[in-house]
Design a binder for these strands. Sequence first.
DNA 1: ACCCCTTTGTCAGACAGCTGACAGTAATCT
DNA 2: AGATTACTGTCAGCTGTCTGACAAAGGGGT
Lengths: 218, 218
Amino acid sequence: MKTKLSSINLLTELGKEENRDFLVEFTDINYTKNSLIYSPGHERDLIFIVKKGRLRLYLAVEDKDFSLAILEPGDIYATHTRAHVETLEDATLMVMPTAKLQSYMATHPALSRTIIRILGEILKQSFSIIDSLVFKDIKQRLTDFFLYEAEHNGRKGVMGTTVKLDLTTTQLAAIIGSTRQTVSTIISAMLKDGVLEKKDRNIYIISNIDLLRNYGHT
Amino acid sequence: MKTKLSSINLLTELGKEENRDFLVEFTDINYTKNSLIYSPGHERDLIFIVKKGRLRLYLAVEDKDFSLAILEPGDIYATHTRAHVETLEDATLMVMPTAKLQSYMATHPALSRTIIRILGEILKQSFSIIDSLVFKDIKQRLTDFFLYEAEHNGRKGVMGTTVKLDLTTTQLAAIIGSTRQTVSTIISAMLKDGVLEKKDRNIYIISNIDLLRNYGHT
DNA sequence: ACCCCTTTGTCAGACAGCTGACAGTAATCT
DNA sequence: AGATTACTGTCAGCTGTCTGACAAAGGGGT
């Protein structure tokens, strides 16, 4: 259960000297936290790169929503999909019309390769979302989420791995495709079973990662 | 509920004169029906275009499986994903190593554009799969499936639209992410409720498509 | 220190969909 | 034709997850 769509960081990529002329084609836009910035049917066809802040990419129907990814600095995305995009924090985006990107691609084959690589990664990630929705129950998805966080954003210490989630239970539930209540109940059970320890609000310690790894399968 | 990944038909595209030299780079391979031809972890990194027959692209875990798409002539796919590919009928594939495609892309920017378009379509389709898994119940997914089939492969007559499914109940269940039994029960209910009529094994008539369209929402 | 608002934990009840079982029907093989 | 295998329909549990409700705890602002 990953929250990033792609492991390619475009800020690093674009920082290189040879991409300087491409970089200037972007327009910076600032947004305040908790604002919906793009919805499906958005008239303008744009691509954007996150420069600062965290965004949430999600599908929504009526009162339910499901997070496809949490976008962070270096992530790229486009506005013309069926997903909504909202800011979780104050954020700055680098924006460019898709048409401009396309004309740029015609003269820069290396760019096409990068785009294809990114699309491939996003596709792989969405297959893995489908996989988890179809084959895994909530407990497994939650364990997968903690395992991913521990591995990618955890701080390893003598006591085990410390994981800090900047998410409310509701937000976490939307990522794994469940509800607040169910997630809360399962986390309580995990604390009781000793696979997780709560250090502080949003901060958990995993002392034995193999225990957690096993936990998903009962 | 679509079963095709992409609406771009590469056989038509490649039939054009200017692509002749590219076309000859492919190797034809024949497969008999009901054989698993690629699995995740497949050592060779290939792309293939379906020339003849229908294939099923699916995710599998232990005894469960979920169909991502039914590939038909003109569809393209790659072997290095987490999905399995099996033939539903005797089939012929046009195969090429991904590396060869990539070197070809360097000199043919138009090809990159096509690849990007295809990846975009597959991505869109997988978002729509996620959408249906998260937000829709089995009844809705099944109605969506019939609606899609009626629209794209149905034969319209005076009595309504005739839909022929070349699928067993189990296969249909794997497409919408359910079980044989549930699908069978719901189809029975649809027949009783008159939104569907059974003409023959695998052949259904939809006399009133609006009735069916409504049916998903109770 | 107080109030307000957001977040969390927990529980009982409901229900959609899965499982397993069995009988009936259709297709395929020899 | 008969036998074997594959597919379909149906029903009675069972279970995982959602819903709604309420109380408790935390955080921020004044």
